[in-house]
Simulated scan of single mutants.
Amino acid sequence: MQLTQGMTALVTGGVSGLGEASAVALLERGLNVVAVDLNEERGAAMEKQYAGQLKFVKADVADAEQMQKAVSAAQAWGQFRALVHCAGIGGPVRLIEKDGSPGSLEKYTNIIRINQIGTFNTLRLSAVAMAQNEPLEGERGACVLTASVAGYEGQIGQIPYASSKAAVIGMTIVAARDLASKMIRVCTIAPGLFDTPILAKLPENVRQSLAASVPNPARLGRPPEYAMTALHILENPMLNGETIRLDGAIRMQPR
């Protein structure tokens, strides 16, 4: 699908990290962007910076009503044909915590709610909207989801995050087949270790150790590299139902 001026994209997690990089890349292509996030301060700043091109919508991706408002905003702008879904959270949970207590069901449930249910909710609402488009060169729209290498090789303490990202990987081919008759493509990116706000909270020595664990290039991934991949998926009509690892050949160890 050729990305052209006048099209609209919806980007979740759109005001930081992978989502912000994707939003900026789409803006540079001339698209209108609806950025969905919970950070109102950063959202207002981006809306001001890209006045007339970007609209910020505060929404919880797992909330049906809030996300419908975001999708409706994209539809109202016209030619809503692209989704890049980056919103997600992490958090450590073990089955048996170090003090001997069982892992937090509340934490597990919340991570599943945002990462897994939020992905399904965002995808289903976006797909319904895109299905109303007239086909352009055999396509009505394309959707990029975000998983993680943790969905394949989750580390100790990552059970909720790994579960949620494995679910996104699992839904990718099914969603692509489900939406094939509507001429809507679905692919997923599974990033490795990327320099995002989540990793920015770690001590510098830990960040350096993580970067050194990536075979090649031996560094953390950069958000624009995710955005580059997302745009390629949107534009390449033969990419469908695929989860692409974007990880510098890393395979995560147990710890």
Rank of each mutant, 00 (worst) to 15 (best):
M46K: 12
G141F: 03
H85K: 07
C187L: 01
A70H: 03
A25N: 04
L145R: 08
L54W: 02
G138Q: 10
R245G: 01
T119G: 13
N110H: 14
A76G: 13
A175Y: 11
G103C: 09
A150Y: 02
G43C: 11
R185A: 00
K165A: 01
S213R: 15
I156A: 14
P92A: 14
P254D: 10
G154W: 00
E242V: 15
A82F: 12
T12P: 06
Q68T: 13
N133W: 07
V84W: 00
V71S: 02
S16I: 05
G90I: 10
L220N: 01
L136N: 07
V11C: 06
F80T: 03
M130V: 08
R207I: 10
V84K: 02
I89T: 14
A218N: 13
S72R: 09
N32R: 15
M171S: 03
L31Y: 08
I169G: 01
L123C: 11
S16E: 08
P217S: 08
T12I: 09
P224Q: 07
T188P: 01
G154Q: 03
K48M: 09
P203E: 04
E225I: 10
G17D: 13
A129I: 04
Y50Q: 04
A64I: 12
E106F: 10
E242G: 00
T229C: 14
I173F: 03
R255M: 12
M46I: 07
K107S: 14
K165D: 07
Y152M: 09
M228G: 11
R177C: 08
A227D: 00
K201E: 14
L3D: 03
